[in-house]
Design a protein around this nucleic acid. Structure first.
Lengths: 153, 153
DNA sequence: TCCTTATTTAAAATTAATCTAAATAAATCC
DNA sequence: GGATTTATTTAGATTAATTTTAAATAAGGA
């Protein structure tokens, strides 16, 4: 089976960052990175934790939270807060263009899109307010109306 | 003192909606609506609750949460989730243009702006995905760098 | 005024996330 | 390789925001 995700690349990055920062190379950190890069969805910390539980790989929730935070800091993972939902959602970020989300308010399906005009808006705002911009988050809420779309589906 | 907010108008709307939906006109609902329309900030449910406590008007937290939800449903209040912060934030919505937020990641100051290109993006997305759009949320995170800007200020 | 039932309430429960202190295990030293 | 140091993991307790529950209250109609 050929490599289907960017695990090799991001592992190399994590290796380098860990050395640079004098951290330790723990089994958990690499396992979590690997799992994150296997997934294509926008998952909660809890979902990741239970994916491990199901597969009998033992990690604690604390480690899942801590490691996700670390990966976010290192720029390997994005953290987002979607509408209403109390819990934060994560997704891999390496090798992916900065993108926005379109979410179906009925079934919660997530679509990703990229519109260059958003960068233009960001630039204008940065200039107008004379503020350096760190990041932005655009979420559009709509109704996908697919035949199998249903509340909380 | 002249009227400084839209309380009269939104009260009329709430009246109508309450009648239309067969709900009851309770003291709490109008008090909360009034307080929301006195404020110009992006407040948490808790902050609203404590504003009442300080003024010796007794409402329970449950009612604050329930009523804010109701006002959101009726379109009189907007609910937003800003970065990192666990708690949801609310603001009045009547008589206000749809706007986006620019937030200082250091001091949490909130700036509001409006860019017509965002509507254009929304329209394109709606057309491309063939989905009716309910709403959108754009939040830009930057650093305001004012002299009195400081972490958690 | 009485009656029905929507609404409010205090308190308990839930959820997501963080903190704590003890146990474990990387990395370094000899 | 074995001992040592200390970063990391862990289970469990804790916090914060919100929701639920079931009893008490009060709006609106008869």
């Amino acid at each position: 089976m050929f490599e289907q995700n960017h695990y090799r690349e991001v592992k190399a990055i994590l290796d380098a960052k860990i050395e640079e920062l004098g951290l330790r190379k723990t089994v958990e950190r690499y396992k979590i990175l690997e799992e994150v890069y296997k997934r294509d969805d926008h998952f909660e910390a809890d979902e990741l934790y239970f994916a491990f539980v199901e597969r009998n790989f033992s990690v604690s929730k604390s480690t899942v939270y801590n490691t996700l935070d670390l990966l976010v800091e290192l720029g390997l993972v994005n953290k987002r807060q979607f509408n209403g939902s109390h819990a934060a959602r994560y997704e891999k970020s390496f090798g992916r263009k900065q993108h926005s989300h379109l979410i179906c308010v009925d079934c919660n399906r997530v679509f990703e899109f990229c519109d260059p005009r958003l960068q233009a808006i960001q630039d204008s705002i940065s200039q107008f307010y004379q503020m350096p911009i760190i990041e932005h988050s655009l979420i559009i809420y709509g109704q996908c109306q697919r035949e199998n779309c249903q509340k909380n589906g």
